[in-house]
Amino acid sequence: MRKHWLIGGVAGAMALAGLAFIRAQDAQRTAAPGGAVAMVASQPIAFPHNTHAGTEPGELGMDCQYCHFSAERSVDAGLPSVDLCVGCHQVIPGANKPEEVAKLMKYWTDKQPIPWVRVYKTPDHAHYPHMMHIAAGLECQQCHGEVQTMDVITAPDPLWGGKDMGWCIDCHRKEGASDDCAVCHY
């Protein structure tokens, strides 16, 4: 009898520990400072969105779609090619972070693509069409957060994290878009 309680107790403790572990994993993906540091350390170049797209004084205020050019006509938003960055940076050494610009130029002279770490991802079993949402009038910030204020991209929680589609469905229902499963899952 005690043996059974022992087994149950150990299993229960393991279950609780496991739950705590999973929750801790979740926490790392949120905007917690510890998590943010982990992200920036893993990007090959510390590209600051706020410097380029921000609207504060001294920031360039570039349009999202200057770099993410295919968002309005494709399912993919598109990632700027190295030559797009070099287009400006061949003459802009970068006053704030010249060592990062130097990394960029090294990728260019080596003719190597920059292996960015992916932050936003919808699962492979869902087909998300960027151009339809832009055509519907959404702002990039509605899903991606206020990217133009971010030095390091951190996916905002609970909006993002790619954990579930409830948030997508909420907006679809509010805006009168289809909530038919087969619209995204096929």
Binding site: G18, R29, V82
Partner: peptide, 24 residues
């Protein structure tokens, strides 16, 4: 209890996925 224990095996940290742009 063993079912709860078995559930622990399902968790794993998310893998880092890369996005590779074109060079040109």
């Amino acid at each position: 209890a063993s079912g709860a224990g078995a559930a622990l095996t399902g968790c794993s940290p998310q893998k880092v996925e890369r996005l590779i742009p074109y060079v040109v």
